[in-house]
Write a protein that binds this DNA or RNA. Structure first.
Length: 341
DNA sequence: GAGCATGATTCGGA
DNA sequence: TCCGAATCATGCTC
């Protein structure tokens, strides 16, 4: 396993033609000139390498062993590594260009903002903002929907982290496997540590692109969840009968000026178990619809006027109040009617 | 399913 | 920022 660095480091002291040092380290056992001996050795090795794939497994193994033991093998492999390195670099130089991965950064930032990646913070700031925005309109059910949103976001978060972990584990396993394979192969073919490193980088890049896809789908899932959640604000639910009666009572008893103050809105909201915005919406709608069709609302106004009068009378009968300030009467209605004209 | 009722949203004006 | 007006979207009734 670890013989490759040793094998490659020997390169500094070994060489061939154009690679100083080879002739000084290779004894000439053939009795021929140095040049002839080297050529014969190298030719022999190359021949063996070229024909190794035509042989049976056993023969190939034996040949592999013989090659590994060949006296010229380190020198030849170093030269081949050198040549390969230069060729690959010249090709890669034209192909590779490091560009900052803006898309990945955007995805990372979004996942962080949504609370999917990074430390758990109860659904993420954007989620919290969405929840806060929604709570203004959803009313009594907002807490349920909010928790539902958070539960789903947590689910997405869990899936994301599980998948990410899986990818990282697979990446590490695959990298180790490829490294071992290349080291093993470096016994029979020229593979330098640099090349192994490059291969590792390639693997990491491939796994990064898979991770990016995961991040992208996670972002999409969060966006869908958010849009669904925000759409829920539009989901209209009728107020319960009691709430409508309370609002109508106030409206008709303040017909001369049906604009509740902040305090009144707050109290009405509390009484009706709705939000202040809903109270404002209700009064806005009521005013405009009343104005548009006074005739239609006349009957309703009379009913609430009578009801308020009865309750006022009952209060005055108890001596605590002689006259209700909010008692509706036709004069008040006329006032508002006049105002609205 | 049509038509009406009603809560929510949007937009322009004061 | 609040309000009126228009509009949307959904609920309810028949």
């Amino acid at each position: 396993m670890d013989d490759q660095p040793r094998l490659m480091h020997a390169h500094a002291a070994v060489g061939m033609s154009g690679h100083p040092g080879l002739s000084q380290h290779i004894p000439d056992n053939t009795g021929a000139t140095d040049g002839d001996g080297r050529k014969q050795d190298i030719g022999d090795i190359l021949q063996q390498i070229m024909t190794i794939t035509d042989q049976s497994l056993d023969e190939a193994q034996a040949r592999k062993h013989a090659l590994n033991c060949h006296r010229m093998k380190p020198a030849l492999f170093n030269v081949l590594c050198d040549v390969k390195e230069k060729t690959v670099l010249s090709i890669r130089g034209a192909q590779e260009e490091e560009s900052p991965d803006a898309q990945l950064m955007r995805l990372d930032n979004m996942l962080l903002a949504e609370g999917v990646s990074g430390p758990e913070k109860g659904g993420g700031s954007a989620a919290a903002a969405a929840a806060a925005a929604a709570s203004a309109g959803v009313g009594a059910d907002n807490s349920t929907e909010h928790s539902d949103y958070r539960a789903k976001l947590t689910q997405i978060r869990q899936i994301y982290h599980t998948e990410l972990e899986k990818y990282e584990q697979a990446c590490n396993e695959f990298t180790t496997h490829v490294m071992n394979l290349l080291r093993e192969q470096s016994r029979t073919r020229p593979i330098s540590p640099k090349e192994i490193e490059r291969m590792v980088n390639i693997i990491h890049r491939k796994f990064s692109s898979i991770q990016m896809q995961l991040k992208q789908s996670t972002c999409e899932a969060v966006m869908i969840l958010r849009s669904r959640f925000l759409d829920a604000r539009r989901k209209r639910r009728n107020f319960n009968k009691q709430a409508t009666e309370i609002l109508n009572e106030y409206f008709y008893s303040h017909l001369s000026n049906p604009y509740p103050s902040e305090e009144a809105k707050e109290e009405l909201a509390k009484k009706c178990s709705i939000t202040m915005s809903q109270v404002s919406n209700w009064f806005g709608n009521k005013r405009i619809r009343y104005k548009k069709n006074i005739g239609k609302f006349q009957e309703e106004a009379n009913i609430y006027a009578a009801r308020t009068a009865v309750s006022a009378a009952s209060v005055s009968a108890h001596g605590s109040q002689t006259n209700s300030p909010s008692t509706p009467n036709s004069a008040a209605m006329r006032t508002y009617d006049h105002r609205l004209q």
